[in-house]
Design a protein around this nucleic acid. Structure first.
Lengths: 177, 177
DNA sequence: TATTGTTATACTCTATAACTATA
DNA sequence: TATAGTTATAGAGTATAACAATA
């Protein structure tokens, strides 16, 4: 764990870790391919956990929790107009981001000032140093990811990233039906 | 939630849900492709959560928790010689599988009998009905997954599944370095 | 009255430790 | 003494409810 712990997921984890294993991959027609493959979730979820575990050393080196990094990512592209907006955009409870923001603000990585137009809300933005840390962590993570992706044949790598972007861009309700 | 709740993940969840978004995908060279893509974990983890959410209705229809289904999956291929072995194989604590096994046994989905050779251990196996339930749930899940995968171009779909099997077959330590 | 941010409380899930029964 | 299974306890992490400030 990094600082103050890392987010966790009441409902959303499955332990299908090493349950279902890949079996030899022969190229069949895409439509009726590999009917005995493991469940998608049984592959995707453990992979996600492993990827997060791979990020932890980088985060730790910068003394960031997963939540803190998530906030830096969310604020990096453009400032956010309220903490509630931020919380929703990163899929967190509004009460949970408070401690994270307190910490980041105290360390000078973000700015949090009342919105002059509506003094109830807080305008959230990254400081100069926040941008630097964000970029450093992100590139550190990217290096490890590229090393991992290098294990894949070019075609699989391309399809993997394409599919990931397609699927992760879908609203969760679409996936869940 | 299904029955008695679903496993959760102290350390392993990140809320990068809608944080980083896919940007338009143009085909570059595989090696230096899309340097501004979101972190892998930021795409894989939310996708995994969505996939699990998609499984929940199927599990609920059979009154199974995610853990229970995980156990059914693990016992389906071949019986297991002890609860500790099972727990480790599905990445769970040995104290946590007990309630799950109690429930599954009581409902006649698994058998749990002392090993004659070492009466400390319990031999775990699926009953006839356990096999049926396992198959029914699995095929219900598969239907939904195929519907989702149909959104992908054949090439991406193929690469995605290939990559998933390759990466999820790696020991987590390999991914985490 | 409704909303933003905050705090405090309760709840869920998980891991740790202690116990039993076998070996 | 060590291990498999079990139970009970304590610890994280999270969400719910209640509050103050502003609109």
């Amino acid at each position: 764990m990094v600082r103050g712990g890392v987010p966790s997921a009441g409902e959303y984890r499955c332990a299908m870790a090493q349950t279902q294993r890949a079996n030899s991959g022969d190229a069949l027609a895409p439509t009726r391919r590999d009917p005995d493959r493991p469940d998608l979730a049984a592959m995707v979820v453990p992979l996600g956990r492993a990827l997060m575990a791979a990020e932890l050393p980088v985060l730790r080196a910068h003394d960031l929790t997963m939540w803190a990094y998530t906030v830096l990512l969310a604020l990096g592209d453009e400032p956010v107009r309220s903490q509630a907006t931020l919380a929703e955009s990163i899929g967190a409870d509004k009460t949970r981001v408070i401690a994270v923001l307190d910490d980041l603000e105290q360390r000078g990585l973000i700015r949090r000032r009342p919105d002059p137009a509506d003094r109830r809300a807080r305008l959230l933005s990254l400081t100069e140093q926040g941008h630097r840390v964000r970029a450093a962590v992100r590139s550190g993570i990217r290096v490890r990811e590229e090393r991992l992706l290098a294990r894949l044949p070019d075609a699989d790598r391309l399809g993997f990233l394409n599919a990931l972007r397609t699927l992760s861009a879908l609203p969760p309700e679409t996936i869940a039906d």
